[in-house]
Nucleic acid binder design. Structure first.
Length: 641
RNA sequence: CGGGGCGUAGCUCAGCCUGGUAGAGCGCUGCGUUUGGGACGCAGAGGCCCGCAGUUCGAAUCUGCGCGCCCCGACCA
């Protein structure tokens, strides 16, 4: 159906209903705003001011002359990453303050498309959408101890009655309470609730444009099951939904094992978009499918020399306080030394601060996340130089042998397995050779507290080697268990009539990060090349020299109408700009397809069709243009899943 | 929270060292020329030089104190 026919029908219907026709309303509205109605196109420089013509498609199209937001030729100074620079240059986003952005019409369309995809996949996986409050009473956070755990990241405010409140950084507490009020029987389970909503986190350091922000849209989902088996099923459903979501959005991700951090629970996986600009580090096995965040990553320690323990022997090491210097000075491999790293475990729940003496083999580094976990979740900080002496230790020469009793000595797995190490003597300028764990000293705790890195061997397969990569966390799925249901005292009655505490899972995705990652993954020197699924518009229609050639203008307008009527979303460049400007803007903005109408092609009864992501331009017969665009769009969408 | 950098027109920046009535390019407005890869001419609009307090006859410029933004690190469900 033609647009003007549609319009006529709508108009007739409106008149019949006694409603003032749409285009007349527009004029009235303008008058009401004390402004003249949109002027007729001027003879020249009509740049922008042409009013929507009768029959203007109401939803699926946008004239660039009317589009709010302009493209920038130069990169705004604050942008470091490609996604940040291109989103700013294209007029997709605008920064209000550190870590807080507005989305302009184009940017918002992208986010809404991501949102739609997520909603479809969540619904398909059995999720039910809800909408939870942003503003929450602080007591809720005190109940689970997370007011402490979140610390300064939690945005807090006080209402007029001086009641302390928080802006939700996540919603485990709220949803658990909601669940408890509305579910009372095992028959109500399983249930997965989700929402797409703005979250607030006062990040210490926002960075990378949309990558780490303080106000952001997140999809968070929460599953409730009667038992672990149920949780497994809910978790798997979400995991697979996540795979589909990222695939459909054109963002390649790798699922890695992760530390659960302040969220808690037992086991989680992150979906990481691999990029050098990422702020997370992961390791990936080059032989099997093992992949983990370095915070969590296990690895096979390089083997130690098989030797019998030799007699302990002091060695003078004047001025040598680092492993590097020590190994060079003694002409040995760093793996033949023991590295001491001193921390202070912070006070928690009334327990006072206490010194922590961590020992790893010299070729390894301490993984602070693992160390915190080995300490039962106690936060740590580096020990200050002054404190080292206070605890009876000698900086640079600290020794695990005869360490003061109040010092918690914790050794990495590599230590008991490595004989005859060189360690500090706890005297300035002196080390000890042939130190053996079990003979000369024993750690209070032996645990995996070392950091995996490039070249380490895979813990899951024979012969695999770990490789490190940087990346951005796109989503995170957690098996929470009863971390929240227990302290919140959520219960349902089981089949046997006895109350059980439901086991929970939670699942988050950052929408803005998907937008940023999609740009990182799909751009070139000229600009963005959106995946078809989340591009703000399907086609960028470029009309050249519209004011010079009435035939071209008419045909471009007609094509615009035809495309939108065919259900395509069209960005129509109807501006009075030179071809170079239009093409460059089209490249920068990055719609997946570009259609060019020009007098040159029109003479041959054709238009030019170009894929933004590459490939030569094709000349398409004018009559086939719409069908060809639809076909290409289908093809590109199909390729995404 | 440590370290570094930067705040001058819508954007990118010069001017600051050596104090003396605020500049460029891009963008924007008007008129004309131009039209397949960021064209050109002419005429314009646009600035509390981040803020406050000092020094000085005089401060964008020097000094102090704030605030903001960016980067590295710490931190980061």
């Amino acid at each position: 159906m033609r647009a003007d026919v549609v319009h006529r029908d709508v108009r007739r219907a409106e008149v019949a209903r006694g409603v003032q026709p749409r285009d007349e309303r527009r004029v009235d509205l303008a008058r009401a705003l004390h402004r003249p109605p949109p002027a007729a196109p001027r003879a020249r420089r009509s740049r922008a001011r042409c009013p929507p013509v009768p029959g203007e498609p109401r939803l699926a199209g946008m004239r660039m002359s009317r589009l709010f937001g302009r493209t920038l030729r130069e990169v705004p100074g604050d942008a470091e990453t490609a996604s940040h620079a291109l989103l700013l240059r294209g007029g997709y986003i605008d920064q209000l303050m550190a870590g807080v952005y507005s989305y302009l019409p184009l940017g918002w369309r992208v986010e809404r498309k991501v949102e739609r995809i997520i909603r479809e996949e969540m619904d398909a996986a059995g999720g039910q959408e809800v909408r939870l409050p942003v503003i929450q009473p602080i007591e809720l956070w005190e109940r689970t101890g997370r007011k402490q755990a979140m610390g300064d990241v939690l945005f807090q405010l006080i209402d007029r009655r001086e009641r302390p409140l928080a802006l939700g950084p996540t919603h485990e507490e709220v949803v658990t309470q909601l669940f408890d009020r509305h579910a009372s029987s095992y028959r109500d389970l399983p249930v997965t609730l989700y929402q797409i909503q703005t979250k607030f986190r006062d990040e210490a350091r926002p960075r990378g444009g949309l990558v780490r922000v303080r106000e952001f849209t997140m999809k968070d989902a929460y599953s409730f099951d009667v038992d672990e088996r149920g949780l497994d099923a809910s978790y798997d459903a979400m995991f697979h939904a996540y795979r589909r979501i990222f695939a459909r959005c054109g963002v390649p991700t790798v699922a890695v094992e992760a530390d659960s951090g302040a969220i808690g629970g037992k086991g989680s996986q992150e979906f990481i978009f691999v990029t050098d600009t990422g702020d997370d580090t992961i390791v990936v096995c080059d032989a099997c499918d093992y992949a983990a965040n370095t915070e969590k990553a296990e690895f096979v320690r390089p083997p130690a020399a098989a030797e019998e323990p030799l007699p302990l022997e002091p060695v003078a090491t004047p001025g040598i306080t680092t492993i590097e210097d020590l190994a060079r000075f003694l002409g040995i491999d760093p793996a033949r030394t023991a590295k001491a790293v001193l921390f202070v475990a912070k006070a928690k729940d009334g327990a006072p601060e206490h010194p922590v003496f961590a020992v790893v083999r010299g070729d390894l580094a301490v993984n602070e996340v693992k160390l915190v976990n080995a300490l039962g979740g106690r936060e740590i900080r580096p020990m200050l130089d002054a404190e080292v002496a206070e605890h009876g230790l000698v900086a640079g020469y600290a020794s695990p042998i005869d360490a003061p009793r109040h010092v918690h000595v914790i050794a990495d797995l590599s230590i008991p397995a490595s004989p005859n190490l060189v360690a500090g003597a706890n005297r300035v300028g002196e080390h000890l050779r042939n130190v053996n764990h079990g003979r000369d000293w024993s750690a209070a705790t032996v645990a995996d507290i070392a950091l995996a890195r490039d070249e380490h061997r895979c813990p899951r397969c024979e012969g695999g080697t770990l490789r490190t990569a940087r990346g951005i966390e796109m989503g995170h799925v957690f098996r929470l268990g009863t971390t929240y249901t227990k302290p919140m005292e959520a219960r349902v009655l089981a089949a046997d009539g006895k109350p059980v505490t439901p086991v929970m899972g939670c699942y988050g995705i950052g929408l803005g990060r998907i937008v940023a990652a999609a740009v990182e993954a799909h751009h070139d020197e000229q600009g963005v090349a959106w995946p078809a699924s989340i591009a703000p518009y399907d086609v960028h229609l470029v009309g050249l020299a519209l004011d010079r050639d009435a035939a071209v203008r008419e045909d471009a307008e007609r094509l615009y109408a035809e495309l939108t009527e065919a259900g395509l979303e069209v960005l129509y460049d109807d501006r009075e700009e030179s071809p170079g400007v239009k093409f460059n803007d089209a490249d920068l903005l990055g719609m997946p397809l570009r259609l060019t109408v020009s007098s040159r092609n029109l003479k041959g009864g054709a238009v030019e069709l170009q894929r933004r992501a590459g490939g030569a331009a094709e000349t398409v017969a004018r009559a086939d243009a719409v069908a060809r665009v639809r076909a290409l769009r289908e093809e590109m969408m199909g390729a995404l899943i």
